[in-house]
Computed example of a mutant assay.
Amino acid sequence: MTISLRHARVRYGPLEALHGVTLTGPGPGLTVLLGRNGSGRSTALRALAGTVPLSGGAVVWDGVDVTRVPAYERARRGLFLVPERQAVFGSLTVRENLELVASAYDSALDAYPQLRPLLPRRAGTLSGGEQRMLALSRALLARARVLLVDEPAQGMSPAVAARTYELLSALDACVVVAEQRLPPVLRGRPAFVYELRRGVVVFGGEAGERAVYP
């Protein structure tokens, strides 16, 4: 199980955000896209998901070119994207957000027990970290074949962030996450890392090969 960008280019009007990026997320396993704001890491996730079109190159999923397959069809085939913003339905309650994915959601509450007392609350009233927990709970319930997550631990305490990465690392799926810096919990753990700068890949290797990212 793999999902890849091959020489991918993405343009936003006159600006090119990805300049021929090639990277692969194997599965089951965890791949981390590192980079500062403007590096292209979030655009790479969106390109894999099909929510932004390529101006060149290809998206290949399990050996099949899916570049022209729309985002909704990729989702039907088992791809789940958790964007950095608007990852939950703010006007719905926590319970309703979970029920959109599965009628039985105890496993999500076991993963994030902090959500249990928040079930009747509207998702839009939750803190940033609580919304991330809810968004990831929905992703866990979806049992995706490919899970793409932009800044999964944003707003979380260190303990909850560590728990989040334990959950992601244990999934039987191809998991690709985007982060500004390598999470401390991943140092010394099996994970493949790509570092992007200004829309190009400047490093690719195991997480332990580079302990510090500038």
Rank of each mutant, 00 (worst) to 15 (best):
T2M: 07
I3D: 09
S4T: 12
A8V: 07
R9M: 00
V10F: 10
R11G: 11
E16P: 13
E16Q: 15
L18S: 01
G20F: 11
V21Q: 05
T22E: 12
L23Y: 08
T24C: 08
T24M: 00
G25T: 15
P26V: 12
L33D: 04
G35R: 00
G35E: 04
N37S: 13
G38A: 01
G40I: 06
R41L: 03
R41D: 01
A44Y: 06
R46I: 00
R46A: 09
R46H: 09
T51A: 11
V52K: 00
L54Q: 09
S55K: 02
S55G: 06
V59R: 00
W61Y: 07
D62H: 06
D62Q: 13
G63K: 03
Y72E: 15
E73A: 14
R76M: 10
R76V: 05
R77I: 06
L79V: 08
L79H: 00
P83S: 14
E84H: 10
R85G: 03
Q86M: 09
Q86A: 14
V88M: 03
G90S: 12
G90R: 08
G90M: 03
G90A: 14
N97T: 02
L98K: 00
L98W: 04
A104D: 15
S107R: 14
S107L: 07
A108D: 02
D110V: 14
A111N: 12
Y112R: 02
P113W: 08
Q114R: 11
Q114D: 10
L118A: 08
L118W: 09
P120Y: 12
R121Y: 13
R121W: 08
R122Y: 07
R122V: 03
R122L: 09
R122E: 15
L126W: 01
S127N: 03
G129D: 07
G129M: 12
G129Q: 11
E130M: 05
Q131E: 15
R132C: 06
L134G: 02
R138H: 06
A139G: 04
R145L: 02
V146F: 10
L147I: 04
L148M: 06
V149I: 13
A153F: 10
A153S: 15
Q154D: 14
M156Q: 07
S157H: 11
S157W: 13
P158R: 02
A161H: 11
A162Q: 11
L168K: 01
S169T: 14
L171T: 13
L171W: 14
A173N: 01
Q180L: 03
L182R: 03
L182D: 08
P183F: 13
V185T: 10
R187N: 09
R189H: 14
R189Y: 13
A191Y: 03
F192H: 15
V193M: 03
L196E: 00
R197N: 06
G199Q: 07
V202H: 01
F203R: 05
F203N: 06
G205C: 03
G205F: 08
A207C: 06
R210N: 14
P214G: 15
